[in-house]
Amino acid sequence: MEGNIAQLGQFIGAGLAAIGSGAAAIGVGHVAGNFLAGALRNPSAAGSQTATLFIGIAFAEALGIFSFLVALLLMFAV
């Protein structure tokens, strides 16, 4: 098998970084689930908090996107 150790490291690193996307998925699910739990307890307050929900989801997702970006960088840019 040709190739070199650096490429091996790239692919392994990219795979590891991609785990972060899954972790972000857990985070987003957590945010949405807790919002739903709260919204079902007090539906009248839920409507005013959807903006906060999306901000929270966006922050959680941004970190997952960072890890995805690291994976992409390792695969294609390094």
């Binding site: 922050f59 997702e61 941004a62 996107i65 960072f66 995805f68 970006l69």
Partner: peptide, 8 residues
Amino acid sequence: SHSIRLAG
């Protein structure tokens, strides 16, 4: 984060 979120 603002820019990379969107582009990513």
